[in-house]
Design a protein around this nucleic acid. Sequence first.
DNA 1: GTCTATATGGCGATAGAC
DNA 2: GTCTATCGCCATATAGAC
Lengths: 216, 216
Amino acid sequence: MNALKVETEKKIIEAAKEVFVEKGLQGARMQEIADRAGINKALLHYYFRSKDKLFDAIFENIMSQMFAVVAENIRTDMSLPELLGAFVEFYNDFFQMNPFYPQFIFHEIWQNPDRLSEIMKSQQIAPAEIVEKIQQKVPAINNSDLTAEHMIANVLGMTLFPHIARPLFQRVFFNNDNDKYSRFLSERTDFLKELMTGALMGATSSEMNNKPDEDF
Amino acid sequence: MNALKVETEKKIIEAAKEVFVEKGLQGARMQEIADRAGINKALLHYYFRSKDKLFDAIFENIMSQMFAVVAENIRTDMSLPELLGAFVEFYNDFFQMNPFYPQFIFHEIWQNPDRLSEIMKSQQIAPAEIVEKIQQKVPAINNSDLTAEHMIANVLGMTLFPHIARPLFQRVFFNNDNDKYSRFLSERTDFLKELMTGALMGATSSEMNNKPDEDF
DNA sequence: GTCTATATGGCGATAGAC
DNA sequence: GTCTATCGCCATATAGAC
């Protein structure tokens, strides 16, 4: 029956997501995926021909989900602080709901960067657009040490770090208290959104050491 | 002969470092380690009894190397901007020399956070000391949204992000040009060091929205 | 579509000669 | 200490009944 088939496929995808995301491609076991999906190994291979193909499907699924929101945000006409704030908020929510995603994604960045940038293209994410947008909205940046690339690295770094380093950071600074850390992360969303506004307003005035930007 | 034994062990460690760091524990193959060391698999097991034990040795080796510098910096009497600047500089140099380390370390943070915090203890890294130091040197922080934990997350995030995201970030914003990206990273060291000074001086004056810090 | 049973290959680990 | 040869397991993948 077709409805059953769809149900099974969904169960497989959900189970595979969990296992791959927590253990990685190499660490994951088809047996465990089958168990969590409530089926047997053979059926996995019936739906997806191989472990690799199953992994591809999962990865594509997750990244599309993420990039869809990113692409949508870029195309709005928000002010830059609003735009950056929207990113901060989205990533914080998204990764609080899916704590394993950041490490999973960074792992893939190192194992297979090509595929990832392919997915970005297919999702219409054009980094050049983002850089341009920043340069238009903050013209002072062109005479500044703070290039658009630095700014992007700052925002992404400050936003993502507490998620990617969570198990250690939570243990070391928050007594491994999950609730406390969740509150820290929520509080941090507001903190960073305010910082975006403040830092960008300051950027126009606080620059004196201009360098010719020979490299970029 | 003993000198030979030492030589072999060194070669194994160097080879194992490369393979484990690039592929992770699960992805690494004892065969590949043996090949790169110029020996055979059996000899690997003669020196280190199992793959796990070999991995442990490598991991301990790398983390000790890193934490030794961190611990040393913490114990100096530098001003806070100097201290943070020293961290930025060290991490940037260290990870430019060893580009795979960040992903390797973050992977382990998720696979085995306990062992990592054990190693920190054995290296005399006490996070509480760092927090205290910040609170002493920047008294205004106690009445601010910018808690010490946020500040640490900011500095580490901005510093580490370009390293952990390198393959994608370099591809997407720097045409995958290695030299250009290296220059970006070096330039960024200076950029962040200046930022440390500026941001910390600003922290005392730019605060108006005080909240009682009920949680921390 | 879903299952049980089995094939196939690869990898960590050991035996034993030198 | 170092090698060759091999064991034994485990994980992916397939065959074939229902």
